[in-house]
Amino acid sequence: MIGVSHYLILSGLLFSIGFMGVLRRKNLLMLFFATEVMLNAVNIAFAAVGNYYGDLSGQMFAFFIIAVAASEVAVGLGLLILLYKKYGSLDLDVISSMKG
């Protein structure tokens, strides 16, 4: 039988995949994809736990996460366009203006 642990472990694995993507990606657009993966992984966990306890709060949180993700994409892509205009590239190694 599929229990909540299954969902949670899957969620953790997906999160780790996203995490790995965040670590290894240098292209900002790809980095965004990786964060989307992580957000979705968390959504699964929320829905699963909500289901397990018979509580709607989990779903509510998932909704808000989706809302946040949508606004993040909207603003983030706008920023990416500005960056691309400025540097002609989306590579993190190129955009290193924060040199200490």
Binding site: F19, V22, L23, K26, L31, L92, D93, I95, S96, S97, M98, K99, G100
Partner: peptide, 14 residues
């Protein structure tokens, strides 16, 4: 660590 490279910052954050 403070080399200005966002990617390595990200790695540290991770």
């Amino acid at each position: 660590i403070q080399n200005g490279n966002l990617s390595s910052y990200l790695n540290w954050m991770g």
